[in-house]
Amino acid sequence: MIKLPKILKIGLPITAFSFVFLVFSLNKVNAQTQRTMTIVPPSVIANLDPGGKTEGKLKVINDSDTPLTFTAIMRDFVVEDSAGTPKILPPDSVADKRFSASKWVAIYPSTFTVNPHERQELSYFLQTPADARPGGHYAAVIYTPAVADGTEGSGASVSTQVGTLFYVAVNGPITEKAEVSKFSANPFQEYGPVRILTQVKNLGDLHIKPNGSVMVSNLFGGKVAELKIEERNIFPGGITRDYENVLNKSFLIGPYTAKFTGTYGKNNNLPLIASVTFWIFPWKITLVIILVIVAIILGRKYMDKNKGKKPEEKKEQDKPLDTPEIPTA
């Protein structure tokens, strides 16, 4: 059991993107317009004690040429697939309340209009209950478009929902447990590239972000390649996440071993290990080469056999045998 430190972290997860572009398609009478917005940040990460609280700012930027009106509402979210896709849940529909956090967050203002190429700053207030369960809790601020041009009765609307994800870790004793539930590659193929799948299952109480690499070695233990996995969050409660690496080499031959070594956890010190062996062998071209070699050997033997013979002997050999006459009665 591990005690989470009392550290507050608010901001973007470590990712290649610092913001998210979200595109809305609006349908109007006799016209169709495309409008865009930017959410900053796309996620908020907070570590709090039970009964703890924090606050911060969110920004909605209107990148289009027309006003956009939104209503901000709180919803719980879960992840159910191995791609890490957040699923926004309807109000009070969470079957497992262990991970709910939507009632802990308030947004102000809840309804607002953003003029073209301007931004709206929102304030969020987050407070955990005094009896909050230690571990991970998750919610999302959903920005639901209302009247796009800021006036009632315009008829412009969008159905897409976008939002900011909240990852809330409540300090206290938790279980951190994960495993490599699948580590595979095509066991036999003629050529590269080779796709290697790593699947990690989070059996603990808090989201994790494993890091590690896949080391590929040949028959003699020599290093062929080292492939890093992307650092992605894995939702708790038995949810899996898939990571795919590609050994991008065309000409390979023989047996190879891929070994995954990674770590996870609050202190990033819990191990994840798996290995798999696969074969690369170009059997079609090898078969052609063998047939060519056999043909050359047989042709050489035939030439050697006839090399020392005189032309008369060859003619004698080639002369058809006399057939004895059959006496007639």
Rank of each mutant, 00 (worst) to 15 (best):
residue 250 S to H: 09
residue 166 F to D: 00
residue 277 T to I: 04
residue 109 P to E: 07
residue 149 D to P: 02
residue 276 V to E: 09
residue 47 N to E: 09
residue 63 D to V: 15
residue 241 R to F: 06
residue 60 V to A: 08
residue 130 A to E: 09
residue 270 L to V: 00
residue 251 F to K: 03
residue 199 Q to H: 11
residue 99 F to T: 01
residue 257 T to E: 05
residue 84 G to T: 11
residue 288 V to N: 08
residue 288 V to C: 09
residue 116 P to Y: 11
residue 314 K to C: 05
residue 210 P to A: 08
residue 99 F to H: 01
residue 158 V to M: 15
residue 40 V to Y: 14
residue 48 L to F: 10
residue 90 P to I: 14
residue 274 A to E: 10
residue 191 Y to K: 12
residue 52 G to D: 13
residue 195 R to V: 08
residue 34 Q to R: 06
residue 40 V to A: 10
residue 130 A to G: 11
residue 263 T to R: 09
residue 240 T to H: 00
residue 263 T to H: 10
residue 86 P to I: 15
residue 237 G to Y: 00
residue 58 L to M: 13
residue 160 T to V: 11
residue 319 K to A: 07
residue 187 P to G: 06
residue 222 G to D: 05
residue 252 L to V: 10
residue 325 E to M: 07
residue 117 H to C: 04
residue 161 Q to D: 06
residue 161 Q to F: 04
residue 54 T to W: 08
residue 78 V to L: 08
residue 84 G to R: 02
residue 325 E to T: 13
residue 165 L to K: 02
residue 235 F to E: 00
residue 139 A to W: 04
residue 311 P to T: 07
residue 326 I to P: 04
residue 203 L to R: 00
residue 106 A to V: 06
residue 171 N to E: 14
residue 189 Q to W: 05
residue 244 E to Y: 08
residue 280 I to Q: 13
residue 188 F to M: 12
residue 159 S to Q: 07
residue 84 G to C: 06
residue 97 K to P: 00
residue 121 E to N: 08
residue 93 S to P: 04
residue 37 M to Y: 11
residue 257 T to V: 15
residue 245 N to P: 05
residue 4 L to E: 05
residue 233 N to D: 06
residue 277 T to C: 00
